[in-house]
Design a protein around this nucleic acid. Structure first.
Length: 386
RNA sequence: GUGGGUGUAGCUCAACGGCAGAGCGCCACACUGUGGAUGUGGAUGUUGUGGGUUCGAAACCCAUCACCCACC
């Protein structure tokens, strides 16, 4: 049986609002800030556990909604739990299924007790409640499990008020349902883009005594400026001595902007999804490897990158794999993209420990080529002026 | 050698006397608590070639070239 100290968060140092820490779990320490690759169906798509270790991943996210529907949480438990099943001996976090019920399920009916929905796989009817969401996650056996919440459209105030009441009630019921001492349950702050709702939610969730807190309902349609403003509002309320997890974010510049505002943990499908859609993330912007301009390019994706892909392969070869629809393309580009985001987290951590994060962040954003989203530069100026 | 058929975008084909089009491919863009999905935008033609008929020809006529089929 693991002691409560297993989930201690050592806040090593702060630099402005940025933080460098160490979060302890039964399957190892997580250095923060950290980016968590997403392995929805007990696999980070196209990437093996050995490759993830080489990339330097520590925390991997998996998904309650998907694993419950297929192969079933009971089966995962029977096979020794998620770590054993997917052969990832390091920390794992499972999402509660709340977001997926809203984003993936075909039809859904919400009441104060839970959500009834239809599977996107076969149309069969299922029901999640705070109690079942915790029970399923206890069966899966991740180190960090998430409260069952309701993610509302960011601009709909009335919807957010209703959803917030439910999310808060459900957070308490998740705490009451939890039985395993070797798992940490994180609470989730909601409230859309509305500052007063966000403050109210952060205060309430923080009052419940979770070992860690998440910010949900962002990067779902609001502008980057609104996202960054919301992060600042929420982090001003959340306690310093517990990890803060920004759910579903993000891009390279989102990581920098989030770390600058006190985020410790990120997860996002973007690096692996973009990899399957032929796009590479770099410190200077995005590269679409399908582009004809790469056909004769002998350079790696990023000449300064130390990942396996960049150490061995040219853009010309990667473009060939992409055009030929070869599976290896997804693997090699995923390795690069994940390495890039983990490298951003690693360098940020070093900069924070050295007390020079602001300079690092300013240099990064100045060098990062933004393509179409003008709100990004707004976010940057907000960040500098704060 | 004789007879028949087919030539339209990179490919497969529509349009059959009235603004030359589709699918795929190609060229780009989007993607944030994962549908290896999808969506959006764009470029491309001396209609094999040369002549003729017609107000107007990818279409009808003549010649020619290429390819395919059948028969000597």
């Amino acid at each position: 049986m693991t002691s409560p100290e297993a989930f201690q968060f050592d806040l090593l140092t702060t630099d402005g609002n940025a933080r460098a820490g160490l979060f302890h779990t039964p399957h190892g320490e997580i250095p923060t800030p950290i980016f968590a690759p997403v392995g929805t169906q007990a696999t980070v798509k196209a990437v093996s556990p050995a490759q993830l270790e080489e990339i330097g991943a520590s925390l991997v996210l998996s998904n309650t909604y998907h694993l419950y529907l297929r192969p079933g949480a009971d089966l995962v438990a029977e096979m020794g739990g998620l770590h054993q099943f997917m052969q990832w001996p390091h920390p794992i976090l499972t999402d509660s299924g709340g977001f997926q019920v809203f984003s993936l399920a075909d039809t859904r009916k919400i009441d104060d007790d839970g959500v009834t929905f239809k599977s996107h796989i076969d149309g069969s009817t299922h029901r999640f409640t705070p109690k079942t969401a915790v029970a399923i996650q206890e069966n899966l056996g991740a180190d960090i499990i998430m409260a069952f919440d309701e993610c509302a459209p960011p601009y709909d105030r009335a919807y957010n008020e209703r959803a917030l009441a439910r999310t808060h009630a459900w957070a308490e019921r998740c705490l009451q349902a939890k039985t395993r001492p070797d798992q940490a349950l994180f609470g989730i702050v909601q409230g859309g883009i509305f500052p007063d709702l966000r403050v109210k939610s952060a205060e309430y969730i923080a009052s419940l005594g979770f070992p860690g807190h998440a910010i949900g309902g962002l990067s779902v349609g609001e502008t980057k400026a609104e996202m960054n403003a919301t992060i600042e509002i929420v982090n001003a309320v959340l306690p310093q001595n517990k990890p803060r997890y920004l759910m579903g974010v993000g891009s390279p510049e989102d990581l920098i902007n989030g770390i600058r505002r006190g985020i410790d943990i990120f997860d996002c499908v973007l690096p692996t999804r973009l990899a399957r859609h032929q796009a590479a993330m770099t410190f200077s912007g995005r590269i679409n490897l399908m582009n004809a301009s790469n056909a004769h390019d002998q350079r790696p994706i990023d000449e300064n990158c130390q990942c396996y892909t960049c150490q061995h392969f040219t853009r010309a070869y990667l473009r060939h794999l992409v055009v030929a629809k070869e599976m290896l393309a997804a693997t090699l580009i995923s390795i690069h993209n994940l390495f890039t985001l983990l490298e951003i987290a690693r360098r940020s951590r070093i900069a924070i420990l050295n007390g020079c994060f602001d300079q690092f962040a300013d240099d990064f954003l100045a060098n990062y080529h933004r393509s179409s989203d003008s709100s990004t530069s707004d976010a940057l100026s907000n960040g500098v002026d704060q």
